[in-house]
């Protein structure tokens, strides 16, 4: 898969402060999460990709286009939902989204049609003629999402899309992001400090700290790898059980009190664990996939960085 974003020694400075420091790497996932504590440089990276900030050293490419030379092209391919409250208070949602569509290059009629469509799509269909100034915070977030996708971009950059949303509104936003990802027509770059949001929507994650990339992980691969790592708790003598599992290719280690940790080999059917336990009349009290959550990955990355 060709990379969506390539970072080639990208550094950005504001005055004497280095905000992004020699970022290198590439991401190609359908939905990429950009994680990091406050001040890590997530928003600056997004702004640099959009050409709002000038690189001090190095460069980056979006769909192979250099951010220095092809700024206009990149902006034509991207849709951006900023973190700040960005709207024009006295405009109706449909006028606002239509104008943004037209500025992205849509003809007048097409922009109007698509403005209605995306407002229905994000769930603002009934409120689309109301001025944006009268919208609740959740509705404004949805309007921002609508303006970001009205022109059908290839890359949608979402900066803290669930900021300030109540749980139902957050769920709706996450569902929309997942739907957009699954539609397969665009790539998503989701910047958030909420690990759950990224975990629920992204398949690749880039973790930043103090302007540096501290970890880059493919969540899909991590999830697949985690599925092979199983913890079992039994009651009774499990020595023969562990041997039987080892004979079938599992790497087992007993941690006492009837607890077994094992890595399952490829092609191993999980039902065999129950079968082997039944043969030995062994009671299985618990079986769990010991998976590294995104929180574990994030904390590990933060620890490594310090």
């Amino acid at each position: 898969m060709s990379p969506v974003i390539e970072l080639d020694g990208l550094s950005v400075r504001f005055g004497n402060r280095t905000v992004l420091n020699d970022l290198r790497g590439s991401v190609s996932g359908r939905a990429v999460g950009l994680l990091g504590p406050n001040g890590a440089g997530k928003s600056t990276l997004i702004r640099t990709l959009l050409g709002f900030c000038q690189p001090w050293a190095g460069t980056a490419r979006v769909y192979g286009r250099d951010i220095g030379g092809a700024r206009r092209e990149i902006r034509a391919l991207a849709g951006y939902m900023p973190e700040d409250e960005s709207f024009i208070a006295d405009m109706s949602a449909v006028s606002f989204v239509r104008m943004m569509g037209e500025l992205s290059g849509l003809p007048r009629d097409a922009a109007l049609e698509r403005a209605h469509e995306v407002l229905f799509y994000v769930g603002l269909g009934e409120a689309r003629y109301r001025p944006l100034g009268t919208y609740s915070l959740g509705m404004r977030q949805l309007a921002k999402l609508a303006q970001a996708i009205v022109h059908g971009p290839k890359l949608v950059i979402l900066d803290e899309p669930t900021n300030g949303l109540d749980p139902p509104a957050r769920q709706r936003m996450i569902r929309l992001i997942r739907e957009m990802k699954d539609a397969g027509q665009m790539h998503l770059l989701l910047c958030s400090h909420l690990l759950r949001d990224v975990e629920e929507t992204c398949d690749e994650v880039l973790i930043l700290k103090d302007g540096r990339i501290v970890h880059c992980a493919n969540l899909e691969e991590e999830r697949r790898a985690n599925k092979r790592f199983v913890e079992i708790e039994t009651s009774g003598d499990d020595a023969g059980f562990a041997q039987a599992l080892a004979a079938r290719g599992c790497q087992c280690s007993a941690s006492g009190a009837g607890r077994l940790k094992m890595v399952l080999p490829a092609g191993f059917d999980t039902r065999d664990i129950f079968r082997l336990a039944a043969e030995r009349d062994l009671q299985l009290r618990r079986l769990s996939y010991r998976r590294d959550s995104l929180e574990d990955i994030f904390l590990k990355a933060m620890e490594t960085a310090t």
Partner: peptide, 18 residues
């Protein structure tokens, strides 16, 4: 002023619009 007050300038300039 409405664009500045509502932080809407980013929405204009994230498009192919200088």
């Amino acid at each position: 002023s409405p664009d500045v007050a509502n932080h809407a300038l980013a929405l204009y300039f994230c498009r192919p619009f200088s």
